[in-house]
Design a protein around this nucleic acid. Structure first.
Lengths: 91, 91
DNA sequence: TTTCTATATGCAAAAACTGCATAGCCACTT
DNA sequence: AAGTGGCTATGCAGTTTTTGCATATAGAAA
């Protein structure tokens, strides 16, 4: 499922125009991102938590040539599924 | 930031009642979950992809006692941040 | 059309995962 | 408005899993 299909589904379920549905969806993702930019995790009860994980610098390798490369430290967004979410898929 | 705060923010930004904002938000998460239950990944351009990852059974260890344990196979929801999302946090 | 994402490759090191108790925060109900 | 139950973070050790490097191509999405 892609974003367009998701927006279409929202539009139908909620009696919104597709434009409104898309605007709503974008607002949500932007709100989450803003919070994460301030290094504040976003907790959604029953769904999961988004947080920024810091990753240390380390040694990597160019798979093509095999030579070693130094990889800089970085950050990425992590999503930790809530307990309820795990249970849906494990029974 | 928790769900209540997120809903409040949506309500303000989008001129929705809080009840509507919450309903909208729940609809989104449920839609995503439904897709994942059907083993279909959800791709949100510019944000990321949700997919179900299957994990094989394996041998673990109780860190407290040190004894070996058999861990059953399981599934969990993985979120892979989109390229654009990574760049926000790495510059 | 043009931008974005998945894939596939080898390999080192970081990170996740397991059980479990405690502490703390959140959400829900009275 | 406040109390309580429930979920989550933390720390621990060691093994499994994931990550991420470069880069072209294929496929999909905007």
């Amino acid at each position: 499922m892609n974003k367009k299909q998701l927006v279409a589904k929202l539009s139908g379920s909620l009696n919104l125009s597709k434009a409104d549905a898309e605007r709503t969806f974008d607002t949500i993702t932007n709100t989450i991102l803003d919070s994460l930019k301030n290094d504040e995790p976003v907790k959604i009860a029953g769904f999961g938590t988004y947080k920024v994980a810091k990753r240390k610098a380390r040694v990597g390798r160019n798979p093509r040539t095999g030579e070693q490369i130094q990889i800089a430290a970085s950050q990425k967004v992590k999503f930790l599924p809530a307990k309820a979410l795990k249970e849906v898929f494990n029974r």
